[in-house]
Design a protein around this nucleic acid. Structure first.
Lengths: 258, 258
DNA sequence: ATCTCCTTCTTGGGATCCCAAGGTGAAAGG
DNA sequence: CCTTTCACCTTGGGATCCCAAGAAGGAGAT
């Protein structure tokens, strides 16, 4: 069981993303106490958390104000994360042999392959895909030998909203069979990049591991950019619905076996 | 004026680093309340902060335990920071012309040059050097266009203890005139790297800017490694005394003019 | 002497109260 | 009608109290 302030933060985050509070709206502590039925102590802790996440901005003397992230914000966060992942991939390749993560990586790749071959991208499958994708990325981040890399990644603003190595799916694209084909192509591309990264790490080719992880990350960034241009009118909520954004915070599929 | 919890965190951090509390010692809330004369509320906030910084570890059910960073920890933190700085340098080079940071960078380089030419490495000069060094690095981090880069850097564990782009000075090295010559050489090397980075950013050569910043960071990491090997018996406090670790938290020399 | 159980203390986490400082809006006065 | 002032409210930040759950240590039983 999570403590109340974390749960409260989750609730407020959800409400902000779902549009219950308008962008720029002031969040009064008293009102939040009332709405969620708790005292000011946890409310203020939650507000602090959400400020660090970047969802809220502090307005000195006037409390907190909603600052829902733009697609641009998410792009920048993903860029930083990708860069850190490329460091992790390099370090993991360098320390190849001193860790025991290769089977985990290979299993995740195989799992993703299985979903791609099955070819159906319903909600349940997508969630499983997300999860395996997260396993792949998280394994590299947490197993690279530098403990700060994974930790730092989690500290990036807006990242608590995003699953590891967030994959974005476009609702509208998925609604057509041609769109599904395109998404499948993208997944195939992504997983082939996973394989290349895996092999580089396995061989201890640090330079290649880093370069390939960077390419993988860039592919993601480019996809979001295309997505944004094509759907300028789409709200963040729409993007989030089919991206890796975790509104429930319960599906912590990546239990690290130490 | 800072709020009490932050000040308290500063005090506890200082005490931990200076060795008032042994590594592994338990910090009792009641005891801290007593020692610093405040109530549990700010104490617990401070403990939370210090846990995020990595100075304390939470011992579930048994409060917090001192976990003073090893040289290895600091090395890893610097590695992550360096990697993020290389991203920042690349981005800044890419957006060359859309920002106005070049004069700041050039001024910092010139200032550092001035100190090197003066050739005296007394405490006051070292502090000023640190400060200008911090300006150079922070300007790139904060002015690269991706706001998450600088923010994320500040979130790295142990980083609140370190000045931006921490430069390490070895007390023992500085005690001999030959040692001072070596330190001056290192400073010269570092600042020549600064110049190369600056020129790459100015020319918009993103690849070179990133590569050179990486080299700069590696130089730093290597220096710390040499330092560690040579002075295995040196305590962290010794390292900290002449590194960029900020015990007072008052000398915030890098006021960002927005 | 060892094991078990019970008491006690600490931690974790909230609720409530408190106070100072700064913002806001309404009323009074020009 | 505009300005100024003042009362009121909100926020920021602590102190104090409270309670449940778990750790630690001591007493009693085997």
């Amino acid at each position: 069981m999570e403590s109340i302030d974390t749960e409260l933060a989750n609730k407020i985050r959800k409400d902000v993303i779902l549009g219950t509070y308008d962008d720029g709206a002031r969040l009064s502590e008293a009102q939040l106490c009332d709405t969620y039925g708790v005292s000011r102590t946890p409310v203020r802790l939650a507000l602090r958390l959400l400020e660090r996440e970047g969802i809220l901005r502090r307005a000195e003397g006037r409390g907190y104000v909603v600052h829902s992230p733009t697609v641009q914000d998410i792009l920048q966060a993903v860029q930083v994360r990708g860069h850190l992942e490329s460091l992790a991939a390099r370090l993991m390749a360098q320390s190849s042999g001193r860790h025991n993560r290769l089977p985990t990586l290979e299993a995740a790749i195989d799992e993703i392959d299985k979903f791609i071959r099955a070819g159906n991208l319903d909600d349940a499958s997508l969630r499983k895909l997300q999860q395996q994708n997260a396993v792949f990325h998280k394994t590299i981040l947490d197993g690279c030998g530098n403990d700060f890399v994974g930790y730092t990644c989690d500290q990036i603003s807006h990242m608590p909203m995003l699953e590891s190595g967030s994959m974005v799916f476009d609702k509208q694209v998925l609604s057509t069979s041609e769109g599904i084909q395109r998404s499948l192509f993208r997944l195939k591309l992504g997983n082939s990049q996973h394989k290349v990264i895996f092999e580089a790490i396995q061989k201890g080719d640090a330079v290649r591991a880093e370069a390939m992880m960077r390419e993988h990350s860039n592919t993601m960034v480019e996809y979001i950019e295309v997505f944004e241009k094509r759907n300028a009118e789409l709200t963040l909520t729409d993007l989030i619905s089919y991206s890796g954004i975790n509104l429930d915070q319960d599906a912590s599929g990546t239990d690290e076996a130490e």
